[in-house]
């Protein structure tokens, strides 16, 4: 399995500060949830997400992953909500006892395209940002250092543990443990698989903690950083603007009914 989706390509988008990319994704996500227009998702996907993906040289991966991830949900949405959307009346197709209704289809379309935008916007960040850089950026923005430690360490321990799980799986199968067959057989296989894995990992925790303390991990003084993230004044301004934009979109949509004379918007 992929340890992380980061694709190290030389692009202007990749070179942006992680928080800038995150702010763009946030603004897209907020907009797609707040704007009440059926085609907002399609518009955002075509006119914002795709151009950025092309710029970042990751459009193939963004498209492929977005569609493979969203397709099962889209099918479910059409089947469940297209046919069984509560309160829908406008029948457009009757098969046997079931009827496909316009309101349900509309809901399925809006939801599926919205999911498509969420996935696409997220992937713009994921594919172009090393998780360690994202963690470091979050710390820079004021998140506790231990958050970065947890995220990066988990990402790095994951392949190690997966390798160990594979090792245990092979060893147990060599000893005759069956991992296929009836549900009973598979449940019986579960415990011998996870027990050595979990205990092995827990055994190490004390030494890991000692080794962290031995390197002043919990020192009270402010930490310095070996690696620095590239940032710029323009990006700092852009981030602030994107955040303001997102907040405005939320406020405006909350007051959509009073749009024309909302004091919050006029000020």
């Amino acid at each position: 399995m992929n340890q992380s989706f980061f694709l190290d390509r030389a692009s202007g988008w990749h070179a942006l500060h992680p928080l800038t990319k995150l702010a763009v994704a946030l603004a897209i996500a907020v907009t797609v949830f707040c704007v009440r227009w059926n085609y907002i998702s399609v518009a955002l996907f075509v006119f914002i997400i795709l151009p950025i993906a092309v710029w970042a040289k990751i459009w193939r991966e963004v498209l492929r992953t977005t569609f493979t991830v969203i397709l099962p949900l889209a099918i479910s949405l059409v089947l469940v909500q297209g046919f069984f959307y509560p309160g829908a009346t406008d029948v457009i197709w009757q098969i046997g006892p079931f009827s496909l209704k316009r309101e349900g289809l509309e809901f399925a379309f809006v939801t599926a395209t919205r999911l498509m935008v969420i996935a696409g916007a997220g992937l713009l960040v994921v594919y172009a940002t090393h998780p360690a850089d994202l963690a470091r950026a979050l710390v820079q923005a004021g998140a506790p250092y231990s958050l970065a430690y947890i995220i990066v360490t988990a990402i790095q321990l994951l392949p190690e543990m997966q390798a160990r799980a594979d090792g245990i799986l092979n060893a147990q199968q060599a000893r005759g443990l069956e991992t296929t067959g009836s549900l009973r057989v598979r449940i019986a296989a579960f415990v011998p698989l996870i027990a050595p894995l979990v205990y092995g990992a827990l055994e190490n925790v004390q030494e890991r903690a000692l080794a962290l303390d031995a390197r002043a991990f919990r020192a009270a003084r402010p930490k310095t950083s070996w690696r620095e993230l590239r940032d710029s004044q323009a990006q700092r301004v852009a981030r602030v603007l994107l955040i303001i934009f997102s907040i405005l979109v939320v406020l405006v949509s909350l007051q959509a009914a009073l749009w024309q004379n909302s004091p919050l918007v006029l000020r």
Partner: peptide, 18 residues
């Protein structure tokens, strides 16, 4: 530590904390 991606960074970890 797990929190660092390269050997150089790993060596520097204690110094960062200090």
């Amino acid at each position: 530590s797990g929190a660092k991606l390269t050997v150089s960074e790993e060596v520097a970890f204690g110094l960062e904390n200090l």
